[in-house]
Amino acid sequence: MTIDDDDLVARIRQALKVVIDPELGHNIVDLGFIYDVSVDDGVVHIIMTATTLGCPAAFFLKEGVASSACLVPGVESVDVTMTFEPPWQPSMISPGVRSSLGFAEVN
């Protein structure tokens, strides 16, 4: 990726913070749901997860990620992949959010 692509990825990650996990109540970036964001000729590829396979919220999270990424200037199209490998763990949450959620120490 170029420096411009890195900048675009950073802006996309920032834009994705409008998407929250409704149950945990925090944005999915800080919760660690976004596994990877990459740019390839203006096409953004996002690999993400959710807490529970089969959860009705998972579909809306995926759509929300696509919608918010599309709004970032410079993005031509978005491809979102939902995966449950590896499964999401509370240890993926950023430390500040983890303490605000009242989470136990996780390894």
């Binding site: 409008v18 998407v19 929250i20 409704p22 149950e23 109540g25 809306f60 759509e63 929300g64 918010s68």
Partner: peptide, 23 residues
Amino acid sequence: PFLTWLETYGPVMGRMPTPRVQD
């Protein structure tokens, strides 16, 4: 509240800020 949240705020997620289920 969880089903109500999904029905109301799921379709606009990513485009507008949304409340939490707890709200």
